[in-house]
Simulated assay, not measured.
Amino acid sequence: MSIPPLIFQTWKSTTDIPANFAYWSRTFREQNPGYEHRLWDDADNRRFIADHYAWFLPTYDAYPAEIYRADAVRYFFLYHFGGIYADMDTECLRPLDGVLGHGDVVLGRMGANPDFAQSLPNAVMLSRPRQPFWLLVMSLLQDPATLARRRPEFATGPALLRQAHQLWEVRGADPSVAARIAAVQARLPAHQQADTGPGRVVTVPGNVFFPLDWNDRIHQQFFRKPLLRDQRVLDRKSVLSFFPKSLTVSYWAHSWETPAAER
């Protein structure tokens, strides 16, 4: 069984989406016409957690801003349904069919420095349903050390995802990883138990999902900042020529940091 052709995105309101974000979201439907596309708002996200993972609801509700919840819900969605998660500031350049069989969980690198704390973004992620890797992420979400982190990148976002991946890579030599997964598994009813397969977590190079590196000054100056400042999109011919080997490109709007577009 490969990753299901299901695309999940979320925004604070499904009826009030900025034009550039709406355009980028539409490219996922255009490039993948046979896929199911679900766009949820903040209320949909909370309802999903309350209905299926009520044990996590106190943590979810206690987050200080919506961005933390938007981060967290994507991990639960991928565990529950599988499919593809994509941020709304991400453009789909080419069909995603070819990457669906790459692994049980597929993550993307950003940049050339794997030691950078946010080098494994959670802006595009793919998964088969009920993969135990996401139980490890859920465990970290509730770890007191994680909850003490003030910035969402570290509490719920890419730095947390990278931490989970590092732990997953050493799970055979570190019994605490299996204990973390088992503790979350014990909270789940029988129909939500994790798959017992190999759980292959694959990371693809940065050019596949994240050819723009927001930690790169040149990318910032010539691509990201002008596009976001002017709220414009690149024409299709240009964007395909700029990123000839990429399936997606994220423009890193970080909309939760701007008061005018606060989540």
Rank of each mutant, 00 (worst) to 15 (best):
A173N: 10
Y68D: 15
R236I: 13
F133D: 14
F209S: 11
R26W: 03
K12V: 09
L6V: 15
G199F: 06
L140I: 07
G157L: 01
P205D: 14
F56C: 14
G157N: 04
G101Q: 09
L188N: 02
L39P: 11
V170A: 06
W134I: 14
Y35H: 12
R29I: 09
L212M: 01
P189M: 08
W134M: 10
L141G: 11
Q231M: 06
Q131L: 04
F116G: 02
V184W: 00
H219S: 09
P121G: 15
R224V: 15
R46G: 15
D143H: 12
G172D: 15
R162G: 08
R217M: 05
D41Y: 00
G199I: 09
L188F: 02
T59D: 13
V170S: 04
C92M: 04
E257Q: 15
Y68K: 11
Q31I: 10
P4W: 06
R217E: 13
R263C: 14
P211T: 12
P58D: 14
A145S: 03
F154R: 03
T14G: 06
V204N: 01
L135W: 05
L228Y: 04
W134Q: 08
T196A: 09
L96R: 05
L141M: 11
M88E: 08
M125R: 07
L39H: 07
F81I: 03
G206E: 02
S176Q: 13
R150M: 07
R187W: 03
R74W: 00
A164P: 08
G103A: 08
V202L: 03
R162W: 04
N215M: 06
T156N: 04
L57V: 11
L141F: 09
P211L: 10
H219R: 00
F77K: 05
D235K: 07
D87Y: 08
A86G: 05
Q192L: 09
N32C: 07
S127F: 01
D216R: 00
Y60R: 09
W256K: 13
P129M: 02
S119R: 04
S176I: 13
V106N: 05
L39I: 13
T15Q: 02
E30K: 07
R47H: 06
S250Q: 09
D42N: 13
I49V: 14
R229D: 03
A186Q: 08
P226R: 12
A43V: 12
L6E: 07
L100S: 04
K12E: 12
S25E: 10
D216A: 01
D216S: 03
Y63W: 12
D195F: 02
D213Q: 00
F8K: 00
M110N: 14
V99R: 06
R109K: 13
T27M: 05
Y60D: 15
Q231G: 01
R151L: 13
T59Q: 08
N207Q: 09
N215S: 11
L140S: 05
I218N: 01
S2Y: 01
L136R: 04
A54R: 02
